[in-house]
Structure formats: structure tokens, C-alpha cells
Design a protein around this nucleic acid. Structure first.
Lengths: 126, 126
DNA sequence: GATATTGTATAGTGTCTGGCGACAATCGAC
DNA sequence: GTCGATTGTCGCCAGACACTATACAATATC
């Protein structure tokens, strides 16, 4: 499972991992019922402690995306999060778009990038 | 200056504030040369300590968006951030879009929302 | 059942966040 | 120019958080 973490990213590691897995689920690379690698394996790959990955899994379980089972592994249990605050989602989107603007990207380029990302997200939806 | 903070948002307050101000600058509501309200005023409005707001201002100064002057206030000093990691920006965008997908929004609606947000961002650019 | 594999719990360490109070720089009235 | 008001800064503290190491518990495999 291709996950990376970033030193310069100010989010905690466990949340970076959780967000990456969310991305994999969103774009259908991880589908309902599929097993995730054991926490120790991911932890070794990334060079962090197993508890850090376990925290990420628990986070996703709390949101209803994973079913984590003591002794066996973790499974993708849904491709939908239960209740999601719409305002929160928009705020995050707005913030990331604002950063593109502040980076100096012109409007057409931003539109281009966004469309490309959306395309990637729905690539596997047929 | 209309800023809000959100208890349920897991980002620290000072970063929420910094991001909101970034948004105001990005969409041109705060323009270069304009003064920001004193840290005490913002702090009182939001019910937090002045140091929390000061931390937000310092954050923005570090990114080159503000000029903070001891004794006088803080000014918007640019509408561009100096160096910005492109990969980081895309990652944030990707994450926020993924969350929309996981919330169950259909592709057309996501496109709609994104276009609306982009429009808002460039509303004042003529 | 024994052993390996997998997630969980606990405890320790360092960092981050946010509050309080004192300090320092600047401004404005006079 | 001085003084008071206004503004940002600093040092310290308490609590929460992030991450690690190690021991424990549940499940799978044989």
C-alpha cells in the first residue's frame, strides 16, 4: 500500500496516514471488504511505531471507513463516511484553493489542476 | 474583520485564524497595505488569549504575508507567499476533494461546489 | 494446544497549545 | 519632549497531544 509521510507536513503522522488511506478509499484503490496491511508492516515501511499506525486505523474506524478486528487485521468497511459536516468540508476546500491563489497560480491553471484531481478521483468509477 | 473559530476543528486555534486571514487576503478583502486589527481586539472577539492571535500573525509574517510592527499594528505586505511547495498544495487539495467524495457527493455536485468556490476567490479580481 | 500473527493497553518522554502577567516599542495629545 | 494609551513580545506554566517502547490480549494456523 503506497503511503508516504512528510516531515515538513505539520499534521501529525497518524493523521497523514489516515488521510492517505481515505484518499485510497475515495478513489477506489481500496474497496469495501479489502484487507489493510498489518499495523506493524506499515509502521516498518514508514519507520514509525506501530501504535502510530494503529491510531490512524482507529481514527478511520471511528469514521466508519474501517472495521478493525483484534487478532485479524483491518478491513475497509465502507466508502462513505456517516455524518459529515458540510460546512467543514467546504472550509477545507476553500482553504486549499486559497493557498493556490496565494502561491500565485492564475485562475485557469487552478481550474486545470482541480479538474485533473477530480478526474483522478473518479477514474475507477465506471 | 470577520473571523470565526471552530471547536470541532482539530487544527489549533492560531492556525485556524491564520488560515482565515489567508483566505481574506487571497480573495482580496484584505489588500496590500491594509492594517489588521490589534491582536487584543481579535482575541477578545474570539474569546481567546492575545498570544494565540499574536502567534497567528507571526505565522503569517513568516510566510511574508504580513508585516508585524511592535507598537504599531500589522499590515498586509503581500498577496503572494514566497516559496511554496507545489506538491504540498496539491496534497491538501486532493485531501479536501477526497473528503467530498467520501461524504457521498456525486461528481457533478463536487464540480459545482469547486467552481463556486473558485468564483468567490476571484470575485474581486477585475 | 502451541505458535505465530494481529490489534490493544499502559507508561514514559518530549513537544505543542494556549493562558497569564510583565515588558518593550510606538503613537498621540499636550 | 513627556506621559499615557495602544500595540506587539517575552517568559513561564499547566494541560493536552504525539510518538515510542514494551507488555498484553485476541485471533489465525497448524
Amino acid at each position: 500500500m503506497y503511503i508516504t509521510i512528510d516531515e515538513s507536513d505539520r499534521r501529525p503522522i497518524y493523521r497523514q496516514v489516515a488521510d492517505e488511506i481515505k484518499g485510497l478509499i475515495a478513489r477506489g484503490e481500496l474497496r469495501e471488504g479489502m484487507a489493510l496491511p498489518p499495523v506493524r508492516q506499515v509502521a516498518d515501511d514508514l519507520g514509525v511505531n506501530l501504535n502510530t499506525i494503529a491510531a490512524a486505523y482507529r481514527e478511520l474506524q471511528k469514521e466508519g471507513l474501517l472495521k478493525v478486528r483484534h487478532g485479524s487485521g483491518a478491513l475497509v468497511s465502507a466508502r462513505r463516511v456517516a455524518q459529515q459536516n458540510d460546512a467543514e468540508l467546504r472550509k477545507a476546500l476553500r482553504a486549499s484553493l486559497a493557498h493556490l491563489v496565494l502561491a500565485g497560480l492564475p485562475r485557469p491553471e487552478i481550474v486545470e489542476i482541480v479538474n485533473e484531481e477530480i478526474r483522478q478521483l473518479f477514474k475507477r468509477d465506471r
